[in-house]
Write a protein that binds this DNA or RNA. Sequence first.
DNA 1: TAAGATTGACTCTTCAATCTTC
DNA 2: GAAGATTGAAGAGTCAATCTTA
Lengths: 169, 169
Amino acid sequence: VVDRRKLPFDPIAEAKRQWEGHAWESPALGMSIVTSIMRLQQVFLTQANAILRPFGLTFARYEVLMLLTFSSQGSMPLGKMGERLQVNAASVTNLVDRLATQGLLTKSPNPADGRGTLAHLTPAGRETAQRATKEMNTQLFADLGPDRVVLEELFHVLGTIRQAAGDFE
Amino acid sequence: VVDRRKLPFDPIAEAKRQWEGHAWESPALGMSIVTSIMRLQQVFLTQANAILRPFGLTFARYEVLMLLTFSSQGSMPLGKMGERLQVNAASVTNLVDRLATQGLLTKSPNPADGRGTLAHLTPAGRETAQRATKEMNTQLFADLGPDRVVLEELFHVLGTIRQAAGDFE
DNA sequence: TAAGATTGACTCTTCAATCTTC
DNA sequence: GAAGATTGAAGAGTCAATCTTA
């Protein structure tokens, strides 16, 4: 599984230099940050999926499970889940169906809306989410590198950019 | 195309509060940052692909083109491209084949290694990359929201995290 | 044996089209 | 008509297995 070899230099910093040398001084920084985000997402996703594999989960399905865990009744309409997770309705259907097949949640018609569907966490789903979170917390979330103060500031800046990009109001 | 509706609050900040309320105070910040990165990548990717669509490109293929643009000869072995872009060899094959079909690059055996393949930028490829970059610079990279000083610091912190995650040495 | 590249299977994502119900 | 949900198609990513050459 050593496919993504470690480079002896930062390829994005190198790209930034190239950009600055091609009369693109101004957007070079933005390009570097967008590329860094893209790369970091891949790294995190790979690590998360490796941690979640023993539980039969992927990061996308883990997020669905955690969303239900945090809901008051352990259930939620599919449309609301899509809003919260910011994913397409088609993705929600796909993820929920897989989790239902795994017995981690059940689907049922929404009594409040004949068009809607409700996803409801099963005891097995709650149990799996709990155990998976323990691993995610220790193996991925606990230590990203920089210290707490820097990470607090980072979270704030990322929020500002997400807001500027229209992710929320 | 208004599928990803804008929420009146930040769903990740909400998740952070939930995390902190479930005896996971310590990893809550790391979870929030990982999730923010995941979400921001989706937002950037969607915007980038919308900008690149008129050129018949996707962000992944655009990166391949730009890498070749910056190489001295306009050509590079596929394996080296995978290292630089930090993507799987299978992805490189796929992307290069698509770009070759579009006439934006050509494939040829590597004279220095009988096992290898070289991708070489065509004039059309160089032209397309140049025009696409103009749009990417003005529509995406030029203004991410925060001012220059904050973005410089952000780029540095992201680099630290990528390094801690083993993206480069 | 190891490295470069390719293929096929699987997951996740979006988009477009469709069906049912409000 | 609009909203909730589903389906199918296309793109991109991983992994595992394979083929060829060093």
